[in-house]
Amino acid sequence: MVQKILAGDIRSIARAITLAENEDYQAVELMRSLYSHTGKAYLVGITGPPGGGKSTLVDRMIAYYRKLDLKVAVIGIDPSSTFTGGALLGDRVRMQAHATDSGVFIRSMGSRGHLGGLAVATADSAKILDAAGYDIIIFETVGIGQSEIEVASQVDTTVLVTVPGLGDDIQVLKAGTMEIADIFVVNKADRDGVEKSVMAIEQLLSTWDMTEDDFVPPILKVTAKDNIGIGELAQAIEQHKKYLHDSGKFEVRRRNRAVTEVHTLILNQLDKWAHDKMTKDITTRDNIEEVYLKFIDPHTVAREALRELELETMWDKWGQGADGGG
């Protein structure tokens, strides 16, 4: 499978992504073999509130990069899923014109219930696609929230897409998530209110604490449906890429990414362990019942549970300020 992926075999790439999504153990082995082949692709995140025309924008970006003869992969992430765990993924519709282009790979992804899993799946998928020779990998994410921030930490350039008339959303966005943006796009710029949106973003930017060395996010007016402004967007991405390299931040970002990835992987495993422990381990379950009945305090029970991992003494260390925590 490794050889086939490296050779760009579509079926194998698709299967490998499935393994990553399924959190199958084979994916771990696969990553081990593929990892040394990664690092060439440039990762772009396209994010923003629903109704922003992101899929159409991505569709046009694919066309743009294909003209430059670059291979493009897209991972469309839709974190909405029903309580049954099902998902209905429709981002592809806007990009289906590229379905038969052998230089384009499009994959739709649901969250399958927990966000940590999604972050691992997207990171692994990006590596698979990177190793398979895709030059540009685009993550498209719907909505603004935890999953966007996690995904943003995995890409090199994050493009935040909004549209005129979503003014209220900008208010919402201010609450912390807009900082992830390296580039702002006001899509559907043929509509009334485009200047108002641009001004709102400018105003927001003026409140950012930026030094001279920081990259000032450009604000681009784009009308994706009419293919207007796509070249400018690609250029802005290119400029941001250049900035990252020139400033040395590219390496900083990738180093941070390594940290985040390992961190996430550890947390995921611990989370699963904790979940199992609390649902399957009879002693722990009994103990939780006793917490409820106020016979024991929760700290004691957690400490007891952690004993299995020999982690119970961690608390003592933190308490003494010996080994960093938190």
Partner: peptide, 10 residues
């Protein structure tokens, strides 16, 4: 004129 692409609502 270009071609319309459906606005899919699911």
């Amino acid at each position: 004129f270009g071609e319309y692409r459906e606005s899919v609502v699911l």
